[in-house]
């Protein structure tokens, strides 16, 4: 559904592109993950999806339509995106916050319609935030906040769901809850594109993994093809082994102690 085709992205006045010729796609019905070391270009790809950075070369398409030709409103109706960081300048009621997801569906003076209300209620229920709709955003824990942000993306209603490190700062239970939710959403037919540092969880949940290294694609394929010790060791520049989790059978990355301290 979302497709990056030979995309080159460069920040203004930067000597080298931050993303250099990346081709990958995120189809409906699957979780596609983008992983890679810090600064490898993961979030730059997300910025491009937001239209905040135009490709120098290549194209980004949504169901075949070039994203550069879509208005922001059109794009927002198709792609629901949860940015990496977000802090409202002023406290909001959780319900009001989720309702902001409906912006692209209303006019300048239109109030909330029955369709909006249904979408908001449904999104809140799916993301499991129905119980704290009347709380204010600063009162939420990290896990609750991430789920509320996912709820807003669901209320937005696009077939594609893009998330930039949705489980940063979450404990094991909350992290798993988010991955389970994304898995269920993908099974319903959404295209889920996920930027994450959690390689081991990604290896269990994603259908395909794109491994970025210095702005280029080091590998793109099924978890077993990408979770290879030699490949990951080269990309992350750290000694590691990949083994198989005895409990769930998925490939697991185990970083080793540095040679000097071993």
């Amino acid at each position: 559904m979302i497709r990056f085709d030979g995309v080159v992205l460069r920040y203004p006045r930067a000597p080298r592109p931050a993303v250099d010729g990346v081709t990958l796609d995120a189809p409906r019905g699957a979780i596609t993950a983008i992983v890679g070391p810090n600064g490898s270009g993961k979030s730059t790809l997300v910025r491009a999806l937001l239209g905040r950075l135009a490709p120098e070369r290549g194209s980004i398409t949504v169901d075949g339509d070039n994203i550069a030709a879509l208005t922001r409103l059109d794009a927002a109706r198709r792609i629901s995106l949860v940015p990496q960081r977000e802090e409202p300048a002023f406290p909001l009621m959780v319900r009001d916050f989720i309702a902001l997801g409906r912006y692209a569906h209303g006019g300048v003076w239109s109030g909330e319609t029955a369709v909006d209300r249904a979408a908001i209620a449904n999104a809140a229920q799916r993301a499991g935030v129905g119980e704290f709709l009347e709380r204010r955003t600063p009162e939420l824990s990290g896990g609750e906040w991430q789920r509320v942000r996912i709820a807003r993306a669901l209320a937005q209603g696009g077939d594609a769901l893009v998330l930039d490190e949705p489980t940063a700062f979450l404990d094991v239970a909350h992290e798993m809850a988010v991955f389970e939710l994304l898995d269920a959403l993908a099974r319903e037919g959404r295209a889920v594109l996920l930027v994450s540092h959690q390689l081991n969880l990604v290896a269990r949940f994603a259908t395909r993994i794109a491994l970025l290294h210095a702005g280029a694609l080091a590998a793109f394929g099924a978890p077993d093809d990408v979770m290879r010790g030699d490949l990951l060791e080269r990309v992350y520049e750290w000694p590691l082994v990949v083994t198989r989790d005895p409990a769930v059978g998925a490939p697991v990355l185990v970083p080793l102690r540095n040679r000097a301290s071993r």
């Binding site: 937001l50 629901s80 940015p83 300048a89 902001l100 692209a104």
Partner: peptide
């Protein structure tokens, strides 16, 4: 409505269609 979303930050506002 746009101002409401801009108060969330530029990236969230863009993601929501502004």
């Amino acid at each position: 409505r746009e101002i409401e979303l801009l108060a969330l930050g530029e990236d969230p506002a863009a993601a929501l269609g502004v």
